[in-house]
Computed example of a mutant assay.
Amino acid sequence: METLKHIDLRTDPAARWYVKDETVQVTFAAEPGELASREGPNRYAAGDAIVTGATGDRWVVSRERFDARYLPVAPGVYRNRPVPVLVREMAQAFAIERSAGGDVLTGKPGDWLMQYGPGDYGITERARFEAVYRPAADPAA
């Protein structure tokens, strides 16, 4: 399995812009801990969001990032803001740090590498990607 380093999808001709369209269930951590997601460990601090997606997948979002990316719908229910992200479907198994020195996530062939910003990555399994992501226009265009 290849561990990806210094990846920047902004310069990758195979990368495309997509946007997530999903309503999620959220609880906020009372104390630090770790959640085992399908792609690897997600460590969290008190106050961070523990998210359960429409497909049943669970992951963690830091409180700062959560507040910038999600809007409240009802108590414990949020909807993501339609922010385009760069993605690339991966042909081989791979691993990448969520951020420098952060949790290491692993993906299988057919999973999607997500780049939310420079040095800020995620992985989305193929079935989940197809269920909640839609093509988007290049925000710079």
Rank of each mutant, 00 (worst) to 15 (best):
S99A: 11
Y44V: 03
F66H: 02
T27C: 11
V73F: 07
R43L: 00
Y78T: 10
V51F: 05
L71Q: 13
W17V: 11
L35K: 06
P72Q: 11
T3D: 01
K5I: 04
A29I: 08
V77D: 07
G76I: 14
A49K: 12
E34F: 08
V77S: 14
V85E: 07
D48Q: 04
V24C: 06
R98D: 06
N80K: 03
M90S: 03
E22N: 14
D21R: 15
F28R: 13
N42F: 15
D48R: 04
R58L: 06
F28C: 09
K5G: 01
R88E: 06
S62K: 00
E2P: 12
V19H: 03
T11W: 07
E2K: 15
G33F: 06
V73W: 07
A15I: 13
R79V: 15
A36D: 05
V104Q: 12
T11H: 14
P32H: 07
E39T: 15
P13H: 01
G56F: 01
A74M: 05
Q25L: 12
A95N: 04
F66K: 02
A29Q: 05
L9A: 11
T23I: 13
P41V: 06
N80T: 06
G102I: 11
A91C: 06
L4M: 03
A30T: 13
D57G: 01
A36W: 04
G56I: 02
G53K: 00
T11C: 08
G33W: 03
R98N: 08
I96A: 02
R16M: 08
E97M: 07
V24G: 01
L9G: 14
R16A: 14
Q92D: 09
G102R: 12
A54T: 14
V19S: 02
A14K: 10
I50P: 07
P72E: 08
R81K: 11
